[in-house]
Design a protein around this nucleic acid. Structure first.
Length: 270
DNA sequence: ATGGTAGACACTCTA
């Protein structure tokens, strides 16, 4: 018995319904955390998503940009959302599910960290300032969740590639937003504050390059392979004994009308 | 050094 949780920045759920069905066929997940659904809640394609096999749907979306959702085969026992930096911009949704007698109740968070714009200077670039403030708030929130008993997953597009091998060239990206030392430090402090396990790196050694995002702007994303690992699934220490494996569905980047992010999956023993 | 693409939405913003 196992439980598979996927995180995927779909870059519009309405455009990606075909891709969603293909991802479900490939990974057979039980729970899916989506980011960048780009749709206000009343317009979320509930029926089309239910047809892919996910009856239980939690959405937190606004018009035009951002937006997150959690899709589940198992019923929710609790749901919630949180706003950050005093803005209502739909970057978080959380749900608890009962994963049975061995695995117990799991709390899953779908998170979309602000991208941060282009200029890596908070004085010049308010988007970067917002991203840094968001990461600071996330650290304090994360510290408050810390509990050796709780089974938590924090999944999403964190918009930070922390390791040198999480980008195609550390040297060429060290001053590029998503890989600057300031952002990496802040992400590491969030991880430490919550004692989070970076599950992808539990199974793929840090010596190996690993990416989950390739820009739309490359002529040939595969040939250039200038990727970054922006999508993460973190687990609380209580889940450590249950970690069974991960998968990065890189092939999805080559599908028709792809998202620029690919799905990442974590499987837990239950 | 620069501009390249995608999606929402209705002009230009976000990524």
């Amino acid at each position: 018995m196992s439980l598979t949780v996927v995180s995927w920045n779909v870059n519009s759920i309405r455009i990606r319904l075909n891709g969603l069905a293909r991802m479900v066929a490939a990974l057979d997940p039980d729970v899916i955390c989506l980011q960048e659904t780009k749709v206000a809640d009343p317009l979320f394609p509930l029926d089309a998503v239910r047809e892919t096999g996910f009856e239980h749907i939690l959405t937190n979306g606004v018009k035009g940009y951002g937006g997150v959702a959690i899709l589940s085969k198992l019923p929710f026992t609790w749901t919630g959302t949180r706003d950050w930096c005093d803005r209502i911009d739909a970057r978080h949704a959380a749900a608890r599910i009962d994963a049975g007698p061995k695995l117990g109740e799991i709390e899953v968070h779908s998170l979309y960290v602000p991208a941060g714009g282009d200029i890596p200077d908070p004085d010049e670039n308010p988007k970067f300032a917002h991203k840094l403030a968001f990461l600071d708030e996330l650290r304090d929130w994360s510290a408050g969740l810390r509990d050796p008993e709780r089974r938590l997953l924090l999944a999403g597009d964190f918009n930070v590639a922390p390791l040198e091998t999480d980008v195609w060239s550390h040297k060429q990206l060290v001053r590029v937003v998503t890989h600057t030392p300031l952002e990496v430090e802040k992400l590491n402090s969030i991880r430490d504050a919550g004692e989070w396990i970076d599950t992808l790196r539990e199974f793929v050694p840090p010596s190996e390059h690993l990416y989950t995002w390739w820009s739309y702007r490359a002529r040939d994303w595969q040939a250039a392979n200038r990727g970054r690992r922006l999508d993460h699934i973190w687990a609380s220490p209580a889940l450590a004994p249950h970690l069974a494996g991960v998968e990065v569905l890189e092939i999805a980047r080559g599908w028709e009308r792809p998202s620029d992010h690919v799905p990442v999956a974590l499987t837990l023993n239950r």
